[in-house]
Amino acid sequence: MVVGAAGVSDALKSVASAAGMASATSGAAGGPPFGGMLRSMVDQTATLDQKASDAITGLLNGSGVEVHDAMIAGQKADMAFQLALQVRNKAVAAYQQMMTMQF
């Protein structure tokens, strides 16, 4: 279902690490909350993708997985992927907008 999750996961991880470095250099006492949120979102997306893959494999193997369970797992993974993609797009757009600012 979610074919390009690895590419978006890599992109989100790089954005998260950049956000974490920015927070660390600015002296944030509580750590990088934005970077942590992105890492958590990437991990949750990967987990949902793995569950969907397992459900679809179980359905195809005939190991007792119901069709509706596989479909629900696939839709959850797809929605998580779409959310991650939109967050990535907004983060990239915000970064590009900041880079074009003149002081």
Rank of each mutant, 00 (worst) to 15 (best):
K90M: 10
D69W: 00
S14V: 07
A24H: 06
Y95M: 07
K90E: 11
T45A: 09
D49L: 11
P32A: 10
L38N: 02
A80P: 08
P33A: 14
G64Y: 03
L59G: 00
L59I: 02
V87L: 10
S53C: 07
Y95G: 07
S23W: 00
D43S: 15
E66Q: 11
M98T: 05
G58F: 01
F103L: 12
S23C: 06
I56A: 03
D78S: 15
G58D: 01
Y95K: 15
G74P: 01
Q97F: 12
M101V: 12
D69Q: 08
T45E: 03
V3F: 12
A19K: 03
Q50T: 13
K13Q: 08
A93R: 10
V42T: 10
G31N: 04
G30T: 07
T25Q: 10
M101W: 13
A55L: 05
A55H: 05
A19N: 05
L12Q: 06
M1N: 04
N89Y: 08
T45M: 07
S26R: 02
M41S: 12
A19W: 02
D43L: 11
I56N: 01
A29F: 05
K13W: 04
M21P: 01
M99R: 14
S17T: 08
L38M: 15
S40H: 09
Q97N: 14
I56R: 02
S14N: 12
A70E: 02
S14G: 03
K90F: 06
D69K: 06
S9C: 13
Y95T: 07
N61Y: 08
G30F: 06
T25P: 00
E66V: 00
F81H: 06
G35L: 02
T57C: 01
S9T: 08
V65S: 02
D69I: 03
G4E: 01
A84Y: 12
M41W: 10
G35C: 04
M71P: 01
Q75S: 13
T47N: 07
A91S: 14
M79A: 13
R88P: 02
G4Q: 08
D78M: 13
D49A: 14
L59K: 05
Q44T: 14
A29L: 12
A19I: 01
Y95W: 10
S17D: 11
T100A: 15
M101I: 11
T25N: 08
M79N: 13
D54M: 06
S23Y: 04
S63L: 06
Q44M: 13
A22R: 00
V8F: 05
A77C: 05
P33V: 11
A28G: 00
L38R: 05
L12G: 04
K13D: 03
R88Q: 11
N89T: 13
A6V: 10
M79F: 07
V87I: 14
G64N: 03
V67A: 13
A93H: 07
K90G: 00
Q97W: 11
T25K: 13
G31C: 03
I56C: 00
F103T: 10
T100E: 15
A73Y: 00
Q50K: 15
T100Y: 14
L85Y: 06
G30I: 04
A55E: 02
L48G: 01
Q75T: 08
L60K: 15
V3Y: 10
P32C: 04
F103N: 12
S53Y: 07
K90P: 00
Q96M: 10
A77Y: 03
M71V: 06
Y95F: 07
K51S: 06
